[in-house]
Design a protein around this nucleic acid. Structure first.
Lengths: 110, 110
DNA sequence: ATTATATATAACCTAAAGGTGTTATGTCAA
DNA sequence: TTGACATAACACCTTTAGGTTATATATAAT
């Protein structure tokens, strides 16, 4: 049993390949549910569920327009991901940089 | 039923908060399974399972040393994440940059 | 008014994720 | 060589993620 179920977590949201594809599609152009669904093999309802997950993570926003609901990308939450990543960049920059980091911070243990 | 079950996927690997904490701990210093486990509430077996997932994603590497198994961070796969992210950076850089991008690429549709 | 279209809502199914406990097996220390 | 320690290997459990189908509601078009 997971201690804390984190709804709306960005890491969770982008974990699914279908959701990443939704994000990509919306980065190209705003689309209705129907139009989005046309790009996938899975059912429209499945796509809607993914859209709900993305909405809870703040990554997309749907706006009703007549009988359609148009979704648009909301990229801000990705900043959190970038911040998380930035901490690790120093490790792979290149071997020299890494060595420098290790020496400076005495991270070579045991 | 997901069409392609992607084992070893990096996005999947970092989706779990416990695994992210393992990554962080290993970024500070290499540790045995026992030492790693001491930082979590969950059982040692649970931690081992997370380590297996991380190993399959190429994010950590465990080396036997006597009766212990010492794990170390293997940050290279995070590059894939950064590449994925870099595509979206243009969207949030700042509103002016975003506007510039939209104008240049005619991404304002409908 | 009637029909077609787009989305919403709900019930349900299955596999996998994350967790547990128990029992080997290998290694170090007395 | 015996006991303690670290990990490995299993078997098992429960919840949730991702998917389905069916039915209802709202809007658009004829």
């Amino acid at each position: 049993m997971g201690s804390e179920l984190q709804k709306g977590d960005i890491f969770q949201a982008i974990a699914d390949p279908t959701r990443r594809e939704v994000i990509r599609l919306l980065s190209v152009k705003n689309q209705s549910i129907a139009e989005l669904s046309s790009h996938f093999e899975v059912s429209r309802n499945a796509v809607v569920k993914h859209l709900n997950v993305l909405t809870e993570a703040g990554l997309v926003r749907g706006e009703k327009s007549g009988r359609e609901k148009i979704y648009q990308l909301q990229p801000e939450p990705l900043k959190e991901l970038q911040e998380w990543l930035s901490y690790y960049e120093k490790f792979w920059y290149n071997k020299l940089t890494k060595l420098k980091y290790v020496v400076e911070n005495d991270t070579l243990n045991k």
